[in-house]
Design a protein around this nucleic acid. Structure first.
Lengths: 234, 234
DNA sequence: CGCCCTCTTGAACCAGTTCAAGCGCAGTGG
DNA sequence: CCACTGCGCTTGAACTGGTTCAAGAGGGCG
């Protein structure tokens, strides 16, 4: 158990920047949990009592409109953290977190986070730089939504998640395509069609995921934007 | 001049949370500038040497793809800050900042920001909470892009920027509609058409901006999302 | 006045949605 | 063992929101 915690600490970019002493403090009040797919970790509007570190699996962060429409804001991979901002500010949850796959998560109490931030300035810096990074990835998503078409966004997504595996690049999708579609701002049907179109670019659906035989082609696809008209805007 | 600086400090949510002493330090190396519309404050890839506090006017933050397509990531109103993240991290600029109108800006050297962060923990907290807020607004933008139509996004934008002026709500648009369109992820023509459609909802273009006679109607428009199908997703 | 620039309008077009049907597969129960 | 059912995914056809390209209206300015 203790070793697992240590492993957590070294994997997580936030924790790894904290001093050994503060890691110790944080871990004393941390809780390791396994949850299965679909489990709600916290929900929009609830009181924020913990920050979470994702050890395994994928988490989706969503928000639901009064009318019932759901938007998927972010997806988190192992090693990433989520739910820190709310708990540090002690505000109600600004969104809902749900396990997109079976997950292993480490929850750290808000109180110990705040305490550690006060006592260990390097931990504070880690939190800040983490927030900046989150910001960057949101900006990237925004950019993609504003100027790329659905197919281009899909190509981006595939390239970003591709792991080079013996020669070819493979994207493992441990969760439903539903989820990917919504994350990309598409309907499932459109995603399916987009994937079909990407066959010409060397993208094939294989048993254990999606295979990319020619990453260069995808990059070229992203590069060519139809919207050349607005090179210059006031 | 000094009084103007003081005014700056009290207006800006980041500075106002800093101690008097750190404000003093920051202001000693601050520089007040007036720039006219179209001036580039900093550009993507350049070294980040300052954070900026916007005293008057509007700033747009953009990013340009290799192919020449430009996306407008954020718009900043008076009182807001921009360019802090890059300068604190000492990374190259992650985007370009340009004056969308004539602007008055206060630039604070990266060095004095970092110095102050080290000496005054409440300033560090202010920066952190600022980053969190930025995060929130990006999430809101993302959400809007993923589930709202262009007209709904426009309605959101109008409501958010409406100032109640003697009975009726008025949105002052000091900059080109071009800019608003791109910010909303639309083409100028589409924005124009959307505005035309919003006439039925009590939105009129008046000499000094856009008038909203019935905010409730706009809220209702945002509330009704066609995409009810996906109330429940895995 | 004529020129430039912003914004609007119109008509054809395209990406993505909607609704509906069909496929393949796992789980269930006869 | 095979039919039955439910679910995720794909495919097809009609439709819609937004884009594209082109033309025109209005306003400020030399």
């Amino acid at each position: 158990m203790e070793t697992l915690m240590a492993a957590a600490a070294s994997r997580c970019p936030v924790l790894s920047q904290a001093s050994a002493a503060s890691r110790e403090t944080l871990m004393r009040h941390a809780l390791l949990r396994h949850v299965e797919r679909g489990t709600c970790i916290f929900s929009h509007g609830a009181a924020a009592e913990s920050g979470y570190i994702l050890m395994g699996g994928w988490i989706k962060i969503t928000r639901t409109q009064p009318c019932g429409a759901i938007s998927i804001l972010t997806l988190h991979a192992p090693g990433e953290t989520f739910g820190f901002a709310d708990s540090i500010r002690r505000l109600p949850r600004s969104a809902t977190a749900e396990a997109a796959t079976d997950c292993t998560i480490l929850s750290v109490s808000a109180r110990s986070i705040c305490q550690t931030m006060r006592s260990d300035s390097s931990f504070g810096n880690a939190i800040l730089s983490h927030s900046f990074q989150q910001n960057d990835s949101l900006l990237q998503q925004l950019e993609a939504l504003k100027i790329f078409s659905g197919i281009q966004r899909l190509a981006c997504f595939l390239l970003r998640h591709a792991k080079p595996g013996n020669g070819r690049h493979i994207v493992r999708l441990p969760f439903h395509k539903h989820l990917v579609a919504h994350y990309l701002g598409l309907k499932p049907e459109s995603l399916s069609r987009s994937l079909a179109k990407l066959k010409e670019y060397g993208v094939r659906t294989v048993p254990d995921g999606i295979e990319i035989s020619n990453p260069g082609a995808l990059e070229a696809l992203i590069g060519e934007t139809s919207d050349i008209r607005h090179r210059e805007i006031a």
